[in-house]
Design a protein around this nucleic acid. Sequence first.
DNA 1: TATAAAGTTGCGGACCGCGCAAAGTTTTGG
DNA 2: CCAAAACTTTGCGCGGTCCGCAACTTTATA
Lengths: 224, 224
Amino acid sequence: MTSDAGLAIDEHEGLTLRERKRLAAREALSSAAIRLAMEKGLEHVRVEDIAAEVGVSPRTFNNYFSSKEEAICAITVRRNGRIADLLINRPAEEPIWTAVTNAVSEHYGDLTGEAPREFIAKFRLLLVSDALRGEFLKAHGEVERKLSLAVAQRTGTDVERDLGPMLLAGAIASAMRVGMHRWLNHDRESTMADCVRAALDELANGLPSLNANRNDETHHNDDD
Amino acid sequence: MTSDAGLAIDEHEGLTLRERKRLAAREALSSAAIRLAMEKGLEHVRVEDIAAEVGVSPRTFNNYFSSKEEAICAITVRRNGRIADLLINRPAEEPIWTAVTNAVSEHYGDLTGEAPREFIAKFRLLLVSDALRGEFLKAHGEVERKLSLAVAQRTGTDVERDLGPMLLAGAIASAMRVGMHRWLNHDRESTMADCVRAALDELANGLPSLNANRNDETHHNDDD
DNA sequence: TATAAAGTTGCGGACCGCGCAAAGTTTTGG
DNA sequence: CCAAAACTTTGCGCGGTCCGCAACTTTATA
């Protein structure tokens, strides 16, 4: 299949035709993988099916993704990776935690109204699937990497030498996972954005709910 | 091969013979997988090789692990999962962060002297491998789950209803990953325990290196 | 000891990931 | 505008994985 078999080759201004096609194909394969997995259940989707859906050979699928799980989780990297960009573009005066919170708000702000109930139920099944959990965490790892670079850039620290950027990135990714988990499993009334923000706040304030008796300085016993 | 082909069926007191055998086999398969991967490189190790090493059929391997990657990363779950147990057994008076720090110290304390240089270099290769990263993160996810339960137990909170336990568990797991990363890549002079503790301290103190201008209360702009 | 429960194994089948080389498409530059 | 260079798609084929099944062996129970 040489021409666009239903692929949208739009957006992405400054790119050459080849690059746009490549992105579009990747996008199309990822979406098809997600759609099929939601319809038929992950285990009943073969790579062959996904390729067929897009009008491309199975062999070509593997030029883009090395497994259907990776194809499905690609959307996580794409979406959540955007938070790193937003973070970099927050006004320089904002303290880091504020900038993070606002970047997250911005991100989820652009996502409102995209929660058709049916979609969520199926999406949930995907995230619970054992086969996807590894790949999902891998995707989050990639997001975390991007976040750590963004944090380092904002704070003028070095992602390799200083512990801060990676730790903060880990905390943010944690908050996203925990917030999402809570939203999916317990608090469908709130928005996902609110759940994630609540998690971020809890973190930013030092986990007050756990720290009834904690000092600001941490004491070590070193009795081992 | 029905009898113990070099398997150590020791430790584990209160268990029936069957259970001890099962654990021993699991252990042996995991170790063999690790050893072979370090010697030959992950991609040159087949499930068949691992099984042969233990004296068991390839089919049996899959009764224990569903991939060689999982077999390799099982050690991470076993080892780091122990921190959750140690955490539960820290004196009840200790504030949560102190208990965490001490549990971590205890854990790594028992691991001193187990760092033959050669071993590390190869171990490092494993962790950097793309094929293992997903499984490694999955293992850390499992550890995180155990940690969150331990934290909930200690603090009398509910792992499902309160955000704290999962967030703290995420932070701890983060600290372990970041500390380990730092130790492997930059700071081989320190012990891994020190690197992880440094990361934990940084977290416990609110990431001071990033927070030159942060208030204790986080302010939101909500300008999106 | 007899019987149930659990573990092991060979076989066979569906699927996957990827190297390779031929064929097709886009880019480059004269 | 054309030809060579750069890159993509595809079929083919191989080595490997994962797992269900059914026969068999080992361990637990009474």
